[in-house]
Design a protein around this nucleic acid. Sequence first.
DNA 1: TCTGGGGTCCTAGGACCC
DNA 2: TCTGGGGTCCTAGGACCC
Length: 433
Amino acid sequence: MGYYAVIDCDNCYVSCERVFRPDLRRKPVVVLSNNDGCVVARSNEAKQIGVKAGTPYYQLASLFPGQQFAVFSSNYELYADMTARVMSMIRAAAPVCFRYSIDEAFCRLDGMPENLLKTWGETLHKRILRNTGMPVSIGIAPNKTLAKMASHYAKHYRGYRHCCVIDSDEKRVKALKHYPLKEVWGIGRRYAVRLESMGDRTAWDFSCHHADWVRLQFNVSLQRTWMELGGKDCVPDEQMASHKKSICTSRSFSGMITDLTDLSTHVANYASRCAEKLRRQHAMASVVGVFADTNHFRDDLPQYQACGDRRLLTPASATQPIVQTALDILRHIYRPGYHYKRAGVIVMGIQEEEGVQTNFIDFDAERFKKMKRLDEAVDRINRIGGSETVVLATQQYTRPAGQGKAEVFANAIRHDFRSGNPSTRWSDLIELH
DNA sequence: TCTGGGGTCCTAGGACCC
DNA sequence: TCTGGGGTCCTAGGACCC
């Protein structure tokens, strides 16, 4: 029987910040979402105090009066860099692995003798901690769902020394009997509520139903989870595949926006980011979509969800056509008189760069090559200098004020507690020569 | 006053075709 | 006025994940 390992970073964003702030060990630390909106990561100390994920930042002081927290705005460049180091160490330790999210990876441990699994995990944990400063938890089991469950035990019980292995039916049953339903990978809050109303409390209770009952009451996804809890391996690896079917960039604004010009600046930036993400995975998109929403928390204001999309004549990853299309769509779906709080761009119909069908009506090979060279240069500069070092004119968060002087655009994204970027990458410095 | 951002899959129902 | 049945594709909505 083959085994899977899941390796995931403990309190990932908090751990990233702490690597450069060892003074914050054992202190309550939280990291905020974009715009300093709500808590997205908490140190164990913050969890113990009772801070819940998703708590709006502005409620923190009143919910926990007198409590001291170290607070960070999110710094995704730092987290991407730190986790890339962790991932490269994981890849070195296992021949087949797939990154599942920013802080998590699955590995196949086919052929590894069962008596070595635990040592493999403990060694990897130590190596990652020593070389990157990142604490990880490792779960090992015959399928991905049980491996996730094992990693949960590894994270919460010190006795496992950061690595928990489920390698027998006794251990599987014991793990299920102590595992709350809503923590099962594939059973979310909604399904947990439904199952609890039917009398289930633990993963074990759920696994005792009949397969047909699960299929009839729910769907094939949940039935697959049910099978994995029973020990079968049926979540395909392809589900972890990294090539995306859509790429989205969206943000909430710190204030609200009514003006089309202001909205266009943001949308141009999101479109540009989408194009950059496409190029990074050597892909092109054939459909561009744009949305803009009003603030759904404001019952006193009229609500509107603008959205629209358009097919490109020729699939693209170049910044210019994607930005232009996005702005065009925005002009069509924009309605004056609303207070917009959030907007985004999504690119779909994604194909590999090679083998893209070019439409001859629209296609100009020379122009295409020029745009490609330009984008490559811009990507390189932005990787070194930080994103948005070089942008299109429409992307600038400034606009002319009265006497021809530029003023900083009032609705930029807020990051009041941002750490620096202490982890400059060598690869980027080398590219300078 | 302030309430995130990115993805995936499945299903039901409608449109459309023969 | 009567007005079947089956297949496929698309879309919207709802669930899940981190």
